[in-house]
Structure formats: C-alpha cells, structure tokens
Nucleic acid binder design. Structure first.
Lengths: 209, 209
DNA sequence: GTCTATACGTGGATAGAC
DNA sequence: GTCTATCCACGTATAGAC
C-alpha cells in the first residue's frame, strides 16, 4: 500500500532506495495520523512530526516538498483505498436486502481497518487545495451513490417500499460515518464493529421493508 | 445571548461599556465562525481575525486574553445554548412517539438555527484544554441520554419494540448531526430542514414500531 | 541518505500614543 | 476604547557537512 504511494510519487521523493523510502514513508504517515488525531494537522508542526517519526528536518524533507503536499499525499492514498473498495464491492448476491447489507457492512468494516485515514480525511479534507477538495467530495458522493443505486434497484424490484432513495442513503451514510467519528464512545461501551454494522443494517431494513 | 456572554466573562474583558462590548464581541465571534468554517480555527491567525472583524490587534485583545481563551469562550456560549435547550425541551406530550419525534425535531431545528456553533464545536472541540474537552463530551452524552431515556420510556410502556436503546439513540444522533455537518450537500439538493427531520423521525419510528 | 545549523517569514501578544 | 508599532518565539524550508 505504502509501496504504491512511493511509486506514484517517486518523482517528488528525493530518496530513491525503495526499501528505505517505504519504511520511512510508513513512519511519517503513521506519525501524521497520531499527531493529527490529537491536535489536528494544522496545529502539527514539522518539528513535532520529526520527533514523532524519528527523522530529522532535513531527512523529512527528502520525502515531501511541503507540509501542504503531505496533506495531498495522504489524501491521495486514501482515495486509492476507497476507489479499490468501490470497484471490489460488487458482489454476486442477488437478493436486494442481502446486497444492501453487504454494501453497508463492507463500508463499516473498511472504515474500521483504515480508521486513521477515514478520521483524518473527514477532519482535514476541507483544508486541501480547491482541486483536491473537489476530488474528496467526489469520492464522498460516489460512496453515497452506491447506496442510492442499491436502494433504487430494490425499489424497482418491489423488494423495498418506495421512498426517496437519496435521502435514505444519506441517512445510512451518516450512521456509517459515526463508527469512525466516535470511536471513543463505542470503545467505552464495548460495542463491536459487527454489532454496530448489524444495528445500522437493521435500522435501514426496517425503513425499507 | 452575546450579552450573557459579556456578563459572564466581564472579568476578563477590558472594555466595560456594555453596548460597545456586545457589538464587538458579536463581530468577533461571527468572524471566527466565518474563518474557521473555511480554514479551521488553528489556521486562523489573529491578524486574519482582525481583518475580518474590523478590529485592530490592540482592540481585539481588549476582549480576549489569548487565542486559546477565545476558543473556550465560544465553546462556553454554545454549551449554554445546549443546556437551555435540554432544560426547555421537556414537553407536555404523552404519546411516546410524539415525545420522541419532538425531541428529534427540536435538536435538528436548534442545530439549524445555531449551525455555525454546532459545526465549529464539532470540528474544534478536540483542540480545547483537557477540562473543556470533558465538558464538551458531557454535553454530547447528555443530548444522547435524552434520546436514550425517551426510547426506554417507550419500551417500558410497550409502545416501542424492545431493543438496545443506547445503540439506537446513537444512530439517531448520528443522523441528526449530519444535518449540520453536511449542509452543502443538503443545500445543493434542496432538502429542507423540515423534510430532513421528518426523514430521521420516520427512520427511527420504523425501527422502534 | 541523513544530519545539524540556519535563514527567513509569520505567529501571538503587548506597550504606549491618541 | 482603539490604533500603530514592535517584540520575540516559533513556523516552514533549505544549505551544506558527513
């Protein structure tokens, strides 16, 4: 995953030895997540990042060209994760309820696995450059559209009751998002990712049945 | 509202003439919301704030003691709004469905009226001092508990089907929050606050019936 | 490839005139 | 009560040694 990121950005990374570069990029990105989770990306100084990642200022700047570019880099990585997810989430299920459930569940599980990125992206993507903001919004719209399409398909097959599919999709998405936005809450309560996904699915099914 | 804020913080505000102080505080807070909405509180420099609010650096510091204190000030104001809301949201309705609907609706309407604060608070409260973070979390828990209690009451009266009230309350809250977190989306689609609240209520009712 | 040292700008905050 | 001018610390980014 980081390897891909290295290859795609090889042009702007001064360090050429792949093994070293991948190892350090990994540390840098993890450090960014750790610090941003606590104080936010804007408040993170490059000195903070050096301390946390174990690199020096000079070393760090061998991997990025500016703090802003670092933001875009991480954003890009996440976009790739999501794009792959959207491509691969086409299942061989046929029942509309099963298909919708699979879609809801897959997204929640993905956000559990890649939670640092989801959280980071939600909080920081507003601060990107104009172009990257549009791309982030496009990804957001795409995930929501996957839900909308699925609901409309179910309505067309008369499996779901007629309703405003886009509106319902938005509500489902809001519930999905809460899983990575409020993790501290769920952790405290001991809610598992499985039971949370089940709860969202049950809520959606009640509404659509 | 700003008047209250002035009186509660009179000790740390150098300007003593109420009319002037209230007017300027109003401008300062609006400016903070405007800038933070775009680039975030951390990225907002005090010079940005001066330009936007129309005050000079010296003038500005007659109202606050530090940038950090400004954050706490705004946070405190919002907390008062929410506290008052929670006190006043006790209705004279008796039907569990009606009571729950009223609670859901009231919160969404409040977040529509005081949207800048809700959005700001969601995005920036993590960056407060330890003590203020706890207070913010406590408010969050309180609003969710109001929902939980209402659901449990309905279950006890056999109006709602038995379920994990806290989990359902969390899902409802997630949907409520989406209204102020994704306003651009709803604006683009032309979704009205009334129809959004209706949609959330319908979703909740389907699940609980 | 990585470090240390440093340049240069901007940040928050204040002193003192008006 | 408000402004202008200024202080000093810290921010990002780079140059050059190793």
């Amino acid at each position: 995953m980081i390897r891909e990121l290295f290859r795609e950005n090889a042009g702007s990374i001064r360090v050429k030895k792949e093994a070293t570069a991948v190892k350090n990029l990994q540390r840098i990105i993890q450090a960014v997540f750790a610090i941003s989770m606590e104080k936010g990306f804007q408040a993170m100084s490059m000195r903070d990042l050096c301390t946390e990642s174990g690199l020096s200022m000079g070393g760090l700047y061998g991997y990025i060209q500016s703090k802003e570019e670092l933001l875009a880099l991480i954003q890009g990585q996440g976009r790739r994760i999501l794009e792959r997810f959207l491509r691969e989430s086409v299942t061989d299920l046929t029942d509309p309820f099963d298909k919708l459930a699979a879609l809801i569940r897959a997204h929640i599980y993905l956000s559990e696995v890649a939670r640092p990125w989801f959280f980071f992206s939600f909080m920081e993507s507003r601060h990107l450059g104009k172009e990257d903001v549009s791309r982030a919004l496009a990804m957001e719209a795409a995930t929501e559209k996957a839900l909308t399409d699925q609901i409309e398909e179910g309505i067309a097959e008369k499996a779901f009751a007629p309703c405003d599919a886009a509106l319902i999709a938005g509500l489902i998405k809001a519930m999905q998002q809460d899983w990575y936005l409020k993790r501290w809450k769920f952790k405290k309560r001991g809610t598992s990712v499985e039971s949370y996904a089940d709860a969202v699915i049950e809520m959606a099914f009640s509404r659509l049945a």
